[in-house]
C-alpha cells in the first residue's frame, strides 16, 4: 500500500515513498525512500526528477502507488504550487486519491515533542508561518506573523520550538530550539503518518487547497497620470 509523498512548502524540495500497510515501532508508515534538496528557487526544476529517484529508491513504479500525499503549506506561493499541481496531476493521471496534510503539522508530527510546541517556518518578508501544538494537537489555525508579533509571552506560548523559521528567528522567538536540522522542514515520515489512515481506508480524494494565508499583492489603479505638461 504505497503512497507518494510530496512537500514543497519550504526551501526544501521533498519527495518520498511510504508503505502504509506497515506501521513502524516509532508509529506511522514505513518510509521506503526520502529525497530532499534544499533549494528555495528549485522546486520547479527539481521536484519531478526527485520523484523519479524516490520511486526508484523504493523499488516502485507509478503503477504501484495507491495514493499521493501532499503538504499543502502554509508556504511561499510559487514553490508550494509546484508541489500541489504535481500531486494533483499524478493523482489524476493514475486515478488514485490525493490527501492533504498541513505542512506545519507534519513538522510537529515528525518531532519527539514536548507537551507544548511552537512550529515556525520561513514565510519570507521577515515573517513566519506558525502554529502551536499541545499534546500533539494543533491549537487553532496556522497563521503568518512577524516573529515579534506572536501572541503572549514566549513561555506562555510553548515549551520549545522547531522549524526553519524558529531557527532563523531564534533570538526573537526566545524559546528553546529543538536543534535537529531534520526537523527544519516537513519530512516524509511526518507527512505519511498524518495521512496513513486515509490511505488505508481508501478515503475520498481531496482537493489539495493551498494554505496561502496571504492575499495576492495587487492594488486597484487610481486615476491615471496625464502625459501633457
Amino acid at each position: 500500500m504505497l503512497a507518494l509523498v510530496i512537500d514543497t512548502s519550504s526551501a526544501a524540495v521533498t519527495a518520498g515513498v511510504v508503505d502504509c500497510a506497515v506501521d513502524t515501532a516509532q508509529g506511522g508508515p514505513r518510509v521506503l525512500s526520502e529525497q530532499v534538496i534544499v533549494n528555495a528557487r528549485g522546486h520547479g526544476e527539481r521536484l519531478a526528477p526527485l520523484i523519479r529517484q524516490a520511486l526508484a529508491e523504493a523499488g516502485a513504479g507509478m503503477i504501484d502507488l495507491t495514493a499521493v500525499i501532499a503538504g499543502v503549506g502554509p508556504g511561499p506561493f510559487t514553490g508550494l504550487r509546484v508541489g500541489l499541481v504535481t500531486a494533483a496531476a499524478i493523482s489524476d493521471a493514475r486515478g488514485i486519491p490525493a490527501y492533504d496534510v498541513c505542512s506545519l503539522d507534519a513538522i510537529a508530527a515528525g518531532t519527539v515533542e514536548p507537551r507544548r510546541l511552537l512550529v515556525a517556518t520561513d514565510a519570507r518578508r521577515r515573517e513566519v508561518y506558525w502554529a502551536r501544538y499541545v499534546a500533539g494537537r494543533r491549537v487553532g489555525e496556522p497563521a503568518v506573523a512577524k516573529p515579534a508579533d506572536l501572541p503572549g509571552e514566549a513561555e506562555e506560548l510553548a515549551d520549545a520550538m522547531v522549524g526553519a523559521g524558529a531557527r532563523l528567528y531564534a533570538d526573537l522567538l526566545r524559546l528553546p530550539l529543538l536543534d535537529d536540522v531534520d526537523h527544519d522542514y516537513p519530512a516524509v515520515r511526518g507527512l505519511g503518518l498524518l495521512a496513513a489512515d486515509r490511505v488505508r481506508s481508501g478515503a475520498p480524494t481531496e482537493p489539495l487547497t493551498p494554505l496561502y494565508l496571504r492575499r495576492p499583492d495587487a492594488v486597484e489603479p487610481v486615476a491615471s497620470k496625464t502625459v501633457s505638461q
Binding site: 522546486h43 520547479g44 521536484l47 519531478a48 520523484i51 523519479r52 507509478m62 506561493f77 510559487t78 504550487r81 509546484v82 499541481v85 504535481t86 500531486a87 494533483a88 496531476a89 499524478i90 489524476d92 493521471a93 493514475r94
Partner: peptide, 16 residues
C-alpha cells in the same frame, strides 16, 4: 509564476 504551474503539471502528467 504562471508558467511554472503549467510546466510542473506537464512534468507530472508525463511522469505519471
Amino acid at each position: 509564476g504562471a508558467l511554472l504551474v503549467g510546466v510542473a503539471a506537464a512534468k507530472a502528467y508525463a511522469l505519471a
